[in-house]
């Protein structure tokens, strides 16, 4: 018996600078993403990942009318550390950097730049970001939204923190437009519980999602909740 689809992925975009093993029309490997969908006066305060996300979101949500659920476990670790160092030295903080140090900074700039006034959520879930995004998306869809954008982004962890993490993090961002109804060329996203003795590779990172979306892995595993997700072209 086939498990019914949890939701359908209508489209997706991804960014992973320097990635060489996969080429895909929905994947950008640009070292310096343009951020051309956001006015220059707003764009200047974004780093590469913010620019990449704004471009991806603009392509997925042409009418700028979808709720946006954004997740990142670590946010911008380098800039946060820079500010902490400045505080430790009692040096003044850059107001612009401080203003963009909140977790929802990138969705905020995107929303101003594109005039999207729909709901936004910024999530950090101790490594369970993808599972959390799906749960939240399901809630919005159940409430009657026809589609929702989920985005997941991570950057390399600052060297100073790296020893505290066992999961390596590549700089990458991924965004999916999901819905409860299938569309032409959509993918059915189906979950299955993982057996209690199944070995998992830790928390799925944005780069793992890109592997999965590009077809380089059949299932995306997550140890907490013990869950696996597969993507199949919907009929």
């Amino acid at each position: 018996m086939t498990t019914p689809a949890m939701m359908y992925v209508h489209d997706w975009r991804a960014w992973q600078p320097g990635r060489r093993d996969t080429s895909h029309p929905r994947l950008s490997v640009a070292e310096k993403p343009a951020g051309s969908h956001v006015p220059a006066m707003l764009r200047r305060r974004l780093t590469g990942i913010g620019r990449a996300l704004c471009d991806m979101l603009a392509e997925l949500d042409v009418d700028a009318d979808c709720p946006l659920l954004y997740a990142s476990r670590h946010g911008d670790g380098e800039r946060t550390l820079e500010m902490l160092n400045a505080l430790a030295e009692e040096a003044p903080l850059s107001p612009a950097r401080f203003g963009l140090s909140v977790h929802n900074a990138i969705p905020g700039v995107y929303s101003i730049g594109r005039g999207n006034r729909r709901t936004q959520q910024a999530i950090a879930a101790s490594g369970d970001e993808f599972a959390a995004l799906l749960v939240e998306a399901r809630g919005y869809l159940a409430q009657g939204e026809s589609s929702v954008i989920i985005a997941f982004a991570e950057q390399a962890i600052p060297v100073r923190f790296a020893e505290h993490f066992t999961t390596p993090t590549d700089t990458a961002a991924v965004a999916l437009r999901v819905s409860l109804t299938p569309a032409r060329d959509s993918w059915a996203l189906t979950p299955r519980p993982l057996a209690s003795d199944a070995t998992t590779e830790g928390s799925p990172q944005p780069s793992d999602l890109i592997d999965w979306l590009c077809g380089a892995r059949d299932e995306l595993h997550c140890h907490r909740p013990r869950q696996a997700w597969s993507l199949v072209r919907a009929e």
Partner: peptide, 17 residues
């Protein structure tokens, strides 16, 4: 030039430094 209020704070800090 179209600068905003955060720029004003940033510029104030730069003049101080």
């Amino acid at each position: 030039l179209g600068l905003d209020s955060i720029d004003a704070l940033e510029l104030g800090l730069a003049l101080q430094k």
